[in-house]
Amino acid sequence: MNEILKTIKSRRSVRAYTEQQISQEDLTAILEAATYAPSGMGLQTWHFTAIQNDAVLEELNEKIKGAFAKSDEPRLQERGHSRTYCCYYHAPTLVIVSNEPTQWWASMDCACA
């Protein structure tokens, strides 16, 4: 079977992580692969922010929970008030994909990356 198709078919969403940090080599390869994603008009205006610092990850999670707690959406409120909720499932590395909102397709570029 074609290796790319085999990889696509074996992809899974993971929501349980170990505390083991990924290697710098693997993180670099992941970020490099993301830069090859298609982008509107080839502008590649995305940004990748990799966070591996435990204190920063915890602070980010608390800020997100605070925003959720203020939401009008009951599901988000529940998560915002939960002691155990973690928006990144306690992964030791979080990559945030963001973009300049100057083009209407910016969010789609992020999704592709």
Rank of each mutant, 00 (worst) to 15 (best):
S39I: 03
I8V: 10
S10I: 09
A55L: 00
R83W: 10
R75C: 12
G66S: 15
I4M: 06
A37L: 09
Q52S: 10
A34S: 14
T102F: 12
L94V: 15
T7Q: 07
P92N: 11
I96Q: 09
T49L: 04
E58H: 05
Y36I: 02
Y88R: 13
Y36P: 00
N53H: 12
Q24L: 06
N53R: 11
P101D: 12
L60M: 06
S13R: 00
I30P: 00
F48I: 04
S71Q: 03
H81I: 00
P92T: 12
T45V: 01
E32K: 11
I96K: 06
K6A: 15
G66L: 13
S39E: 02
P101A: 12
S23Y: 10
D72F: 05
L27V: 11
F48W: 06
Y88H: 15
K70T: 10
S13F: 06
T84I: 10
W104L: 03
T102V: 14
H81K: 07
Y88V: 06
K70Y: 09
T28H: 14
R75I: 13
L43S: 08
P38N: 11
F68I: 07
T93E: 05
M41Y: 07
A29I: 06
R79C: 13
A69R: 07
T18I: 04
K70R: 12
I51K: 00
E78Y: 08
L31A: 05
V97A: 02
I8F: 10
C86V: 14
